[in-house]
């Protein structure tokens, strides 16, 4: 940090001492949804990969084991919790604050697309100082999270469809029976349900890295905002969504 004290910048700091202000972003319910989803998605991925390709087998008599059945049970419970969370999140898209509402997840303005390009360039080290600052999600985050929600939706639909097959005529079979033919067959639906998990496996390291990077490089206190709900931001910086 000593590098910051170099001559040209020191005078700037002396003239304009930096003030911080605290902004409140995420309601405790949204933070709870985030962390519950994290647990559920990791559980679903681990159990799901076992169900898709059992990476160990048990030996001896079948009566002594219940491995796959337990994996499936945990998978279904985690799926149920995730779907309940997702339904709450959808409700929150309409009753949440301006950072949590649906329009904060859709870069629908022309300005958003311009800013997305600037944010993308920032990550490619091209004129990073031109990138706009956001209190909530920047447009790149907005479109990424919306895409992730869409991925989850496809997995939820295909998951319920396959779940329903065990009980023809039952609730899930009746309500989600249209999903299989839409994909062109059960195996195709199964394939998408399985392969989309890799989107999460790609998303996770990138999401973690960019969050940590925002905190380390730009002092954005993003991580603590998802725990405590608020951020300390520089009072002298202009935010697009302030």
């Amino acid at each position: 940090m000593t590098g910051h004290a170099r001559a040209g910048e020191a005078s700037f700091t002396r003239e304009a001492p930096v003030q911080y202000k605290r902004v409140y972003l995420w309601h405790w319910a949204v933070r709870a949804m985030h962390w519950v989803s994290v647990l559920c998605i990791i559980t679903l991925a681990v159990t799901g990969f076992y169900i898709g390709r059992p990476y160990f087998t048990s030996s001896g008599q079948a009566i002594n084991h219940y491995v796959m059945a337990r994996f499936r049970f945990v998978h279904f419970v985690a799926a149920g919790v995730l779907v309940a969370t997702a339904m709450l999140r959808v409700y929150w898209l309409f009753i949440g604050n301006r950072f949590e509402r649906w329009d904060a997840l859709l870069p629908y303005r022309q300005e958003d697309w311009k800013n997305m390009w600037l944010v993308l360039k920032k990550y490619l080290f091209v004129e990073p100082w031109k990138a706009p600052h956001y209190l909530g999600h920047n447009p790149l985050q907005q479109i990424t999270y919306s895409f992730i929600y869409l991925v989850a939706l496809v997995q939820i639909l295909t998951g319920f469809y396959m779940f329903g097959l065990a009980d023809p005529g039952g609730f899930f079979y009746t309500v989600f029976g249209w999903v299989g033919p839409l994909f062109g067959g059960e195996q195709v639906a199964r394939f998408y349900h399985h392969v989309l998990t890799w989107v999460w496996a790609i998303f996770l390291p990138v999401h973690l890295y960019l969050t940590v990077r925002a905190d380390v490089v730009h002092q954005e206190s993003r991580i603590s905002s998802m725990i405590g709900g608020g951020r300390y931001v520089r009072a002298d910086v202009e935010f697009v969504d302030d």
């Binding site: 940090m1 000593t2 590098g3 910051h4 004290a5 170099r6 040209g8 910048e9 020191a10 700037f12 700091t13 002396r14 304009a16 001492p17 930096v18 920032k122 990073p128 100082w129 990138a131 600052h133 490089v217 730009h218 002092q219 520089r234 002298d236 910086v237």
Partner: peptide, 19 residues
């Protein structure tokens, strides 16, 4: 950091007590 005048930092530099 080595060439601060060539291109501006992403944010105005944060002063600290330590500095």
């Amino acid at each position: 950091r080595q060439a601060p005048n060539k291109e501006p930092a992403d944010l105005p530099v944060i002063p600290t007590e330590k500095k």
